[in-house]
């Protein structure tokens, strides 16, 4: 990490279908630690691919990508990196339906060395943080869309990540619930100094960030 940058991307290229589809075509970005950045662009512009690359869910074809001091182009097993450094929030909450709210928040903590009771107390703390402590033992199916996304936020924070990656976090919510989720994320960034990178196609949502990066046809627009 140089000059306080938590994310450094140089000439990042990514293609699919044997190179016939170019998703990212030479991306260069630096994101500072504690920064709130939104990535905008139309559908198919490559913004979600870029987010997945930062979260080490996908690998680069060419270029350099370094996140929280980890060179992602060199490492093979990135599960530890994802566990320690990254918290994901998806458009669809992606909670496990047969597990309770508490159990869903515990899920990322397996394999981190925490003992059972430590996992439970950490999860309860996070559920309180998203103001769902009275629903800790409910299943996600019993919650509203906004509540489910709040559980997803709690899950993303489970391992104290240095970066939160949110892919259209309000995309499946009504405006009221969407606003509430954005408020929570903003609070999280301000109070906890977490780096927040959010993909959105909604310009109003993007304006909440300190900086907006526009991606078009796999390239960052200046």
């Amino acid at each position: 990490m140089n000059n306080g940058n938590i994310v450094e991307i140089k000439d990042l290229k990514k293609g699919y279908d044997k190179g016939r589809i170019i998703a990212l075509n030479g991306i260069n970005i630096n994101i500072k630690k504690g920064e709130f950045v939104s990535i905008i662009g139309p559908s198919g512009s490559g913004k979600s691919t870029l987010l997945n690359m930062i979260g080490a869910l996908d690998t680069a074809d060419r270029g350099l990508i370094s996140v929280a001091g980890n060179n992602l182009t060199e490492k093979k097993d990135l599960s530890d990196f994802r566990s320690k450094e990254i918290g994901f929030i998806f458009q669809l909450h992606n909670l496990i339906p047969n597990l309770t709210v508490l159990e869903n928040v515990i899920i990322p903590m397996y394999g981190t060395g925490l003992k059972g009771h430590e996992m439970v107390s950490r999860a309860i703390e996070l559920i309180k943080y998203v103001k769902l402590h009275d629903k800790a033992n409910r299943n996600p199916t019993e919650l509203s869309g906004g509540e489910r996304q709040r559980v997803a936020i709690a899950r993303a924070l489970a391992n104290n990540p240095s970066i939160i990656l949110a892919d259209e976090p309000t995309g499946s919510l009504d405006s009221k619930n969407g606003q509430m989720i954005l408020q929570r994320l903003k609070e999280l960034h301000e109070k906890e100094n977490v780096t927040l990178i959010m993909v959105t196609h909604d310009l109003k949502v993007a304006d909440m960030a300190q900086r907006t990066i526009e991606v078009l046809d796999g390239k960052v627009q200046n």
């Binding site: 869910l57 599960s79 530890d80 566990s83 992606n94 496990i96 394999g111 391992n159």
Partner: peptide, 16 residues
């Protein structure tokens, strides 16, 4: 499938 994707995203190792 999607759930397994989430487990990978939150840092679960393949062997887990």
């Amino acid at each position: 499938t999607r759930e397994i994707g989430v487990l990978k995203a939150v840092g679960w190792k393949s062997r887990r």
